[in-house]
Design a protein around this nucleic acid. Structure first.
Lengths: 337, 337
DNA sequence: TTCACTGGTGAGCAATTGATCACCCCGGGG
DNA sequence: CCCCGGGGTGATCAATTGCTCACCAGTGAA
């Protein structure tokens, strides 16, 4: 009970708030009933919200962490952050994150949208849950080459095909490997019209769907043969913590120059920056440093992540990035609530 | 958690409600963020309110009983009901009720309002608390005659004077006794211009402030000499439970014909019915039957009462009058909000 | 293949809210 | 007595909400 309010003021606040929120009366009706002006009723309602006389709670299901989502959005200037439940085993956790990402895509994709897709086990899980309620005439195009060394379902072309199948859209395959032996060969490849054309489409996509890779030897880049374990060790020594589309960053989000980049057939970080909505999915346990580094690089607009990683990212980021909590603002009444 | 909602629907409800009520986003902004239409967001918000995902509570002070006020208003078609705290002793309780009534009058009275005032200990206590924040050019006029047999502060003329003093208004005294010896004398008195004029003003008042009297021998009507104890006993035998301005009613609210009425100098029930806002105050312990009878008579628009009496009235009235509870309606957001 | 039903959309409009402002009243201090 | 500050009002207008509707797409049953 706010101490700075006189007893009869508190009673008036409570009565007026009761009429508005419980009895659904308009401010005009309340003004007439209490013989007050409408601005006065409005200020009293605002005061009721501010003072806690009106207590509005969102009874979210226990697996939702709206607070974490808020914190992530605010700390990294994301347009959206979705935190799904953590699960005891990695596969269930990956599925939960994939489901959330699929729901996001179902709502946001429109006919004509072009979606550039990366490789990865996290992105590879999304098509299973991608079931728009209506057909979507989208184009899914690979954002990077593939590799026979990894499972089909983690290859971009296959992911695109599966996504397109589930919504009646189209897939545009990139007929190129993810890596080649030299920069020269890579440049020569990119000059092939079929390849340049497809990567051009990917570069002009409205949405990119990417995974965030780690720097452990079990990551997709190493398993796919894009990097040797020696190259990965060197990247770690250089401070790399994670990558997106083969572009490695350190914990501060700075891009790390490495010769392997010249051999990759994939969209660059500059390409990603030009894409309006970059959706990143990450579910693997103990990957927060990778995610944090990529977030700080500033190319991600939407993050879909599990709870454990979310908490760890925010802990690592500390108060400097989570920022000073905003002063509590009066909430909407209904209307504003 | 509503069982009829799919998991992903519940998550969507919770997220959208969180944006609206906690983050203060507009429905338009939320629609854009979640790639939905505005009508859809609105329906989801309404559903969130309906389903309990949004929980709006009014943290009223413990001495307020907004539920009792609602129940009284609904059961007796009152335009307002104010329930003030019960107190251990009768005088404190009377003061609490008087304070509430004074606050009501302070808000509702306007320059030019004419207030007809009855006698009584409850109404007599109101001037002590009546302190409008600005001067009010009102006229307080006696609705009935006075009696030297009771304390000055419970006589209508004195109550009017005190109310007028506290707001810079005017008092119009009725120079007549509350009762005379016969109907003939009463009719003769009413023909006196001074008396007819004042009662005429009272009958045209916009507000009436009345007490509710009981049928015990200690009530103001008996103490003031308006009724003998024999007459009171006979009224009780006739089923009378209470009175307003000397007009007795039974528990069903039916007016009881009694010869004393012809000897009273006071506004009639018909007069009261013509007054737009009749405010009744009642604080005496164990008076619910009187209050219930008078409420059922249908002349009261606003009731100011203590909690104990309020509960007893509603209990006496039972479910027939309290009516079937209305089905739970979706509450306003802010708007409802 | 057709039809009915469900549930979405954008558009449009009325109602309500949020905010501002000029004006007024009152009280307190100089 | 004058001035200033606080807090109210009604009026006004922009923004937002509440609601309706025609239209569209998809699904399932006949």
């Amino acid at each position: 009970m706010p101490e700075d309010l006189r007893q009869d003021d508190v009673e008036l606040l409570a009565r007026i708030a009761h009429r508005y929120y419980v009895d659904d009366r308009t401010q005009e009706e309340i003004a007439r009933e209490f013989a007050l002006s409408r601005p006065k009723v409005q200020r009293l309602l605002e005061r009721a919200r501010w003072s806690g006389v009106v207590d509005i709670r969102i009874q979210a299901p226990p697996w939702l962490h709206l607070d974490l989502e808020d914190a992530l959005r605010n700390a990294f200037h994301l347009s959206d952050a979705i935190v799904s439940p953590s699960r005891p085993d990695a596969q269930s956790q990956r599925e939960a994150v994939a489901r959330s990402a699929a729901q996001y895509l179902e709502r946001h994709l429109r006919d004509g949208t072009v979606v550039a897709v990366s490789h990865g086990r996290d992105t590879g899980e999304i098509p299973r849950f991608f079931r728009p309620g209506r057909r979507l005439d989208c184009t899914f195009v690979s954002a990077m080459g593939g590799s026979p060394r990894v499972d089909n379902p983690t290859n971009p072309n296959e992911i695109c095909r599966a996504l397109a199948d589930h919504c009646g859209g189209r897939a545009e395959s990139l007929y190129a490997p993810a890596y080649v032996e030299s920069a020269e060969v890579r440049d020569q490849l990119l000059r092939q019209e079929a390849i340049a054309q497809t990567l051009g489409v990917a570069g002009r996509a409205g949405v990119a769907l990417v995974g965030i890779g780690g720097t452990d030897d079990g990551c997709t880049m190493v398993r796919g043969g894009c990097l040797s374990t020696d190259e990965m060790a060197r990247l770690r020594r250089q401070g790399a913590v994670g990558d997106v589309l083969g572009n490695y960053v350190d914990i501060e989000g700075h891009l790390i120059a490495a010769p392997h980049r010249d051999r990759l057939v994939a969209l660059s970080v500059e390409d990603l920056r030009r894409i309006e909505t970059v959706v990143a999915v990450a579910s693997e346990a103990e990957k927060p440093r990778a995610i944090l580094g990529v977030l700080r690089a500033g190319v991600i607009d939407v993050l879909v992540v599990d709870e454990t990683n979310a908490r760890a990212i925010l802990d690592l980021a500390g108060t400097a990035e989570a920022g000073q909590p905003a002063p509590p603002e009066p909430r909407r009444n209904v209307q504003r609530g």
